[in-house]
């Protein structure tokens, strides 16, 4: 009787039926600039920030933290300005998340000094006794691997040259290893002596956290 006795036709028909909704709600929006608008105020991640983002992904921070503030009154009160689509133009993949076991991080950049993050990542419980966030002290004990930084930036189309990447890395190393770095003490507390003159994974992760929501302030200011 009809298609139920023709498996191949049936499969083709099923594919067509499945692809209609897919085309309208997924494929076509991919080619509509309004889905993911861009803004000149939103800059790509530096090589170090990108490494930090990759560590964020590796550790699965996204399983507890979201990165999108919804346009709801109490949410804006808690986290800050709600998220704008332009902010995510360089996010591959997106890290909006689906569960808030911890607070949203889309506006965490520049909320705290670096020292706060060194201490917090090393042991959340030392700051908030009952926090269930895992301690990440070992990130400060891993040297940051930058051998693929250039390749990553190229793959992501950030348009950095080899010397740009090199400079971004040396510059950030200079910042965090500087004698006058304001967060020197907390950094030294968690970083083993042999790595204090190098970049660690925790340095990069913090660079990334500090970038979150930073550029959008400029974008909003211009409006």
């Amino acid at each position: 009787m009809g298609i139920t006795s023709k498996p191949v036709v049936f499969a083709v028909l099923a594919a067509v039926v499945i692809l209609i909704g897919t085309t309208v709600t997924v494929f076509i929006p991919l080619f509509m600039p309004s889905t993911q608008p861009v803004s000149a105020s939103i800059k790509p991640y530096t090589a170090v920030e990108q490494e930090g983002r990759d560590i964020y992904m590796r550790e699965g921070c996204n399983n507890c933290h979201t990165q999108t503030v919804r346009p709801l009154r109490t949410e804006v009160l808690r986290y800050g300005e709600y998220s704008k689509p332009e902010e995510f133009a360089y996010d591959r993949p997106f890290l909006w998340g689906s569960r808030r076991t911890g607070p949203d991080l889309n506006r965490v950049g520049e909320k705290y000094p670096d020292s706060w993050h060194y201490k917090h990542l090393d042991s959340p419980q030392s700051m908030f006794e009952k926090s269930n966030m895992p301690p990440y002290g070992w990130l400060a004990k891993n040297r940051l691997d930058t051998q693929y930084s250039l390749k990553k930036a190229t793959t992501l189309g950030y348009g950095y040259s080899e010397s740009d990447v090199h400079q971004q890395i040396t510059q950030y190393r200079a910042t965090v290893t500087d004698e006058n770095y304001p967060s020197k003490e907390s950094r030294n507390n968690v970083t083993p002596p042999e790595l204090r003159k190098e970049l660690t994974e925790m340095d990069a992760l913090i660079a990334y956290l500090q970038k979150l929501g930073r550029d959008v302030k400029n974008m909003e200011a211009k409006k």
Binding site: P29, L30, F88, A89, D91, R92
Partner: peptide, 20 residues
């Protein structure tokens, strides 16, 4: 792919979210 163990999505931001 960037290395054998690391790759980046071809979609960015809101598009990536929508596809995902």
């Amino acid at each position: 792919p960037v290395t054998l163990f690391k790759s980046y999505s071809v979609y960015a931001g809101a598009n990536d979210a929508n596809v995902e």
